[in-house]
């Protein structure tokens, strides 16, 4: 807990005051006891998680394993890919999705229940130092190269909803969405691929989650904030699968996500609180 070899977050770096010793002792001693009290032994957990959760969950998995002795492995991919895999019999203990569209249909069939553990919002990123895009209006300039997520990918769906909302508001003129889509040069299968294209300097702009602007990415890209009335907060649902062989440990993982520790790590990686 006290040493994290990961890249330090650029914003809201580690709070200067650490949690009190008693506090840490309490979490360190009691939480595992609490989690193990259900007769759960340490187990190997498989967590299917949306691409956007890559960094946050990697860190959460490490902390969770250290506290509980479990071995958590992750498969990160577009939520829709994970859903297809789960529907076709892939084995996982926990499914964390970036959208309800890819989650709700599975409740009762693949996952037991739905709990929201975080929220996220969209942002536009451009290569660092680029002056071509300062506002949403610039995104429709002819010749600009935009990359977004494909339809069916949660980030792609939210991007299209965002465009529809801008269109309805009429702030940026007629046919905003159509003019925007004319500049789209690629529709990627997951949101991290979208961010990568701007990071590599191949695209002039991309629409990703605020949580995708990780410390590693910040060196190469800058975010163009969206007007808050267009930037809807989208929920991240999580659930334990019905055929999990380690259901108690899987439930403990979900509980950890919702615990102050889990929420702190999620915030650190740019997610918003669940509630």
């Amino acid at each position: 807990m006290n040493h994290r070899p990961t890249r330090p977050p650029a914003s809201r770096a580690r709070a200067p005051r650490r949690p009190s010793l008693t506090g840490r002792l309490l979490t360190g001693l009691f939480l595992p006891a609490l989690l193990l009290s259900g007769g759960a032994q340490a187990a190997a957990l498989t967590v299917f998680a949306a691409s956007s959760l890559t960094d946050a969950f990697t860190e959460i998995g490490r902390d969770f394993d250290r506290q509980t002795g479990n071995r958590t492995t992750f498969q990160f991919a577009g939520s829709q890919t994970l859903r297809t895999q789960l529907e076709n019999g892939a084995r996982a203990d926990v499914f964390a999705s970036a959208s309800d569209t890819q989650f709700t249909p599975l409740v009762g069939k693949v996952v037991a229940a739905r709990q929201v553990f975080a929220r996220n919002t969209l942002t536009v990123i451009v290569p660092r130092g680029s002056a071509r895009v300062r506002t949403l209006a610039d995104l429709t300039r002819p010749g600009l190269r935009i990359v977004i997520a494909a339809p069916g990918v949660p980030a792609g769906e939210y991007t299209r909803q965002l465009l529809a909302a801008v269109d309805r508001a009429g702030t940026y003129g007629q046919d905003y969405a159509a003019r925007f889509m004319k500049n789209v040069v690629s529709e990627e299968p997951n949101v991290r691929q979208v961010a990568l294209k701007v990071q590599l300097g191949e695209a002039d702009a991309a629409v990703v989650y605020t949580s995708d602007v990780t410390p590693a990415l910040k060196a190469r890209v800058q975010a163009v904030a969206l007007p808050s009335r267009f930037a809807a907060l989208t929920p991240y649902p999580v659930g334990v699968t019905l055929d999990s062989r380690s259901a108690p440990q899987a439930r403990a993982f979900v509980a950890y996500l919702l615990s102050p520790d889990g929420q702190r790590t999620l915030r650190k990686w740019g997610f918003r609180a669940a509630r």
């Binding site: 690629s186 529709e187 990627e188 299968p189 691929q193």
Partner: peptide
Amino acid sequence: ILFAGSLQ
């Protein structure tokens, strides 16, 4: 997919 992207 890496070099050319994917657009219908």
